[in-house]
């Protein structure tokens, strides 16, 4: 049931990606380095025809909450990137869809 008119609806989904020759095809950025000024791993770029883009659900501004079951909330940015890079060939991402306002800032 809709609790409030402007419900802070947060759409979260799981994406399984397999690393391709160029990796997953995502460029990540720390939310602190964007006009958002709030920590978090956000998708800054998506390379066409890459595993990440091919999935179709990922878009710029989305936030990565966890990788392979490991939460990135509160983790520092570099260790999160290292975790993704060392996550092996198949990676499971928990992603939070961002609305237009956030996407624009990223």
């Amino acid at each position: 049931s809709r609790s409030s008119a402007t419900d802070d609806f947060c759409y979260v989904f799981v994406v399984e990606l397999e690393r391709g020759p160029i990796g997953l095809g995502m460029g990540l950025i720390d939310g602190l380095h964007t006009p958002l000024c709030s920590p978090g791993i956000y998708i800054r770029t998506l390379i066409e025809d890459s595993p990440a883009a091919a999935d179709g659900r990922l878009s710029i501004g989305d936030r990565i909450l966890a990788v392979n079951g490991t939460s990135l909330i509160g983790a520092d940015y570099q260790s999160a990137v290292d975790l993704i890079r060392s996550g092996g060939k198949k990676l499971r991402f928990l992603v939070a869809k961002s609305d237009m306002e956030i996407a624009k800032k990223i």
Binding site: M26, I29, H33, T45
Partner: peptide
């Protein structure tokens, strides 16, 4: 600013 920004993006 663009140069600085692209520098902070990590490709995975």
């Amino acid at each position: 600013r663009q140069a600085r920004e692209t520098q902070q993006v990590s490709d995975v």
